[in-house]
Design a protein around this nucleic acid. Sequence first.
DNA 1: TATCGGTGGTGCGAAATCGATCCGGCTAGA
DNA 2: TCTAGCCGGATCGATTTCGCACCACCGATA
Lengths: 298, 298
Amino acid sequence: MIDWDDVRYFLAVARGGSVRAAAERLGVNHSTVLRRIAQLEERLGAQMFERLPSGYRLTSAGEEVLEFAEQMEASSHLLETRVFGRDQSARGLLRVTLPPFLATHLLMPDLADFARLHPDIEMEIQSSGEVANLTNREADVAIRIVADRKNLPLNLYGVKGPELFSGVYISRERLAAWRAGATDPIRWIVIDNHGIPVWAREGEVHTTGVPFRTPDAETQIAAAQQGIGMTKLPCFVGDADPLLARVPGTDPPMHGTLWLLTQGETRKTKRVRLFTEFVSRRLAAYAPLLAGLSVSRD
Amino acid sequence: MIDWDDVRYFLAVARGGSVRAAAERLGVNHSTVLRRIAQLEERLGAQMFERLPSGYRLTSAGEEVLEFAEQMEASSHLLETRVFGRDQSARGLLRVTLPPFLATHLLMPDLADFARLHPDIEMEIQSSGEVANLTNREADVAIRIVADRKNLPLNLYGVKGPELFSGVYISRERLAAWRAGATDPIRWIVIDNHGIPVWAREGEVHTTGVPFRTPDAETQIAAAQQGIGMTKLPCFVGDADPLLARVPGTDPPMHGTLWLLTQGETRKTKRVRLFTEFVSRRLAAYAPLLAGLSVSRD
DNA sequence: TATCGGTGGTGCGAAATCGATCCGGCTAGA
DNA sequence: TCTAGCCGGATCGATTTCGCACCACCGATA
């Protein structure tokens, strides 16, 4: 009989592509992963991975097995979700995932309020940029920005929030210099993994074609503040920053709608209900800010 | 994150009804099961079992979870079956389940021959009396005695073997004593868990109503040899025993047909094919013996 | 009533597992 | 060509887990 837990390690390696990457995901030492995979292969009597210099890659046998490993994972998640959904106490863990912008520039005070209001709810904020998978129970509540509501996952339950508008921003100093006739190149600032922006239609101010790539949202803002160029930001971020101004001639385009997403079983939980109702109220209060109506056009 | 292997322990306890029964099935110490269940409940944050004086019983939460635990088990079995089915080497494990009578009194020399012929195939004979579940891959090949072919599982693949006849046997000494006019009670000898035999129609020799129960087939034969009474045995067993004779007036009734059963994925395996073909040939050669034609009526 | 077979639970020493660390190989980029 | 950063693998001591023995409890039975 195989050790079912080894299948977890198998999945992590299959996804991570290497033993070390899997070890990091699993929060264990890489030698442990090495041994568990070796044990699984021994008990199954078949090689699951090719050992390459670049890491581990699934063999054809491993690929066939992957499907069933994922079935086991799904069942395991459903199992956890079921007991979690039954748990009606206000104590326990609540995991929330939301876009970095919202976490750092808007909702963190509200999250703090909620945590103060419910000291027995252990909170975990996931705001790394990667989208957490609610169905896999990586998080209990997700706050997402959705451009087209057709893209909402069907198996999730959503509460619609206010609409979010974005604008194109540039540093005030740089804008003044441009108005004074400076010809330094103005570049688009984009976040690394988001690729070239399709929304990069230009207004009165023209940019050079070469983008400036930043790894995350904070450095994106810092780059804009330093006058490297212009970038698209949610209005509530750009408008609140005294160093930035909207680029003339660029109307705030709709960016998307905020949605509060929960998953079937966990939705019934007391702490999830408490949180979603709390955040819904706060978000509604932020509606004008999110729509970019808080400041007059510059 | 829960330890997936704990779910295996959970299932064993849910089915065994007690920690100790589960430990025996799992082949581990009962304290280990105790700790794993405690760990699972702690990580899930919910009680899975009620502690009763008679053992462990599922709570309502546990019953809800059971469904998903069984899903995990099914996926795990499919996973194992898949890699086993791919394995086309003659090396590896081959698990065979067959009725105790066949194993000890007929096929063991043939199994030994097969093992000698294929020294790289690790063999495991399961002949405990309980029927192993092929679908759950508790065995790879099953040799079964089937009275009505409608009872064959639909998801299995079967090869029909020869027919098996049984007769009613008594010790020769006892039979001679009865013929000499002895009036000692003659009892039916039955195997414990098989209950009162429905086939207990009497011939010329009459029995007392009180059965004599034995725990297994070997003690059943020994009891018959010692003259306790008469018992039903496959003809190839009873006829081969010099101490036993058929009871006059009892015709050998059909007992059933031998079937060689295999499961979808594993059937394609080289070692399974080798085994089924080998055993089929040997069984065909035994057909007269199994039909009870090897000796003349006594 | 005494006993026996079953249950869960506990403490301790042995055994298996894990984590830290070091090593050699490979690759990309300076 | 060298170096930095990956990768897997091996080693060894610390840690965890496990199995064993033992206990208390309960119910049936002699």
